[in-house]
């Protein structure tokens, strides 16, 4: 096999030979490829309705072209800047506050000598990852209820006034971000813990002989060794900036906090499926997708230049 490979570098193997060799692999791929074509590539063909006035009766192809009409309408709508501001501030705050938590958790867990204690903390912190977003939102409303919620009872215990958290726009972001930290930090820490456990113990031994304190071990061994993983995760997170979870924002949304909680994904859903303005919604989602790709590519470029880790 290895010899064959070397040969193939020098002599291009004919397509027929390759097909004879690999046809079974192609057959295995058939269903998945059909799946991607039907459920992912066909909708891409439908993206053209963003440049058309879509009428169900005329179909995608038959509807008339209107150029950038829907895009212009979106850019000049009074909602535009609010949406951008809400989406970006939610994403960036989440990244800024939420991203370091699993890193810190992993580093601290790595310093725990007792295997059982480490295991115990890990098992507990993974747990909320498996709870559905609907249940999470339900729990949030229960705990933050102004009348009976635990948090407000604590506030009142200390003589404060109960806060109607879900009804105040300025509380939307803190609720969103903190509940995200609660739900996902333990799970996100796994990948860092894996990176930390792969550090050679000799390194720690050598540092300890030189009299390094635990704090120094963390600073000079742990942090540099998980930096590449962290950068990769950061790139992936930045790639999601414009696609920040529709589900949770939509569930936490109500008419009272809408000024902070209306983000692009929820707007796309409402305009598209509730108001049935198909073309307009498709245009906003295309715009969103393109911004996202630009972000991802540029962050990846920056990462490539400043370090060795990148996505591709």
């Amino acid at each position: 096999m290895r010899k064959q490979k070397e040969k193939s570098i020098h002599k291009p193997v004919s397509l027929r030979k390759v097909l004879v060799r690999d046809w079974q692999l192609l057959v295995l791929c058939l269903l998945p490829v059909i799946y991607y074509i039907v459920f992912h590539y066909l909708p891409m063909y439908g993206v053209q309705i963003a440049f058309k006035d879509y009428y169900a009766a005329k179909g995608i192809v038959g509807s008339p072209w209107v150029g950038f009409k829907h895009f212009n309408r979106f850019f000049s709508s009074y909602q535009f800047w609010t949406l951008i501001k809400n989406t970006l501030s939610l994403s960036f705050l989440q990244l800024l506050i939420g991203f370091p938590v699993p890193l810190i958790l992993a580093i601290l867990l790595n310093q725990v000598k007792s295997y059982r204690y480490k295991r115990f903390v890990q098992s507990i912190t993974y747990c909320p990852h498996f709870i559905s977003i609907v249940v999470l939102t339900g729990m949030i409303t229960i705990f933050l209820s102004p009348r009976s919620g635990l948090i407000n009872q604590l506030i009142m215990l200390f003589g404060g006034e109960p806060i109607h958290f879900m009804a105040e726009p300025e509380w939307f972001r803190p609720i969103y971000i903190l509940s995200g930290i609660w739900q996902n930090s333990g799970w996100s820490a796994i990948i860092y813990i894996a990176a930390l456990t792969s550090i050679s113990p000799d390194l720690y031994e050598a540092a300890k002989i030189d009299g390094a304190s635990k704090w120094q071990l963390i600073r000079h061994i742990d942090i540099p060794s998980i930096a590449p993983t962290a950068i990769m995760m950061l790139i992936l997170e930045v790639g999601k900036i414009m696609n920040i979870g529709f589900q949770k924002a939509y569930l936490l949304q109500n008419s009272l906090n809408i000024t902070a909680s209306e983000i692009i994904p929820t707007y796309i859903y409402k305009i598209g499926l509730i108001d049935t303005q198909y073309s307009y919604s498709a245009a906003i989602s295309l715009f969103n997708n393109i911004v996202n790709i630009i972000l991802l590519v540029s962050v990846n470029k920056i990462a490539q230049k400043t370090s060795e880790s990148s996505l591709w």
């Binding site: 998945p32 991607y36 439908g46 598209g272 499926l273 790709i293």
Partner: peptide, 21 residues
């Protein structure tokens, strides 16, 4: 095929085109 698959992660048809389909 890897590219064919990964591409769908970055570019999607979006909500409405998928819904119509």
């Amino acid at each position: 095929l890897l590219f064919f698959m990964m591409f769908t992660m970055y570019f999607q048809g979006g909500l409405v085109p998928t819904y119509i389909l």
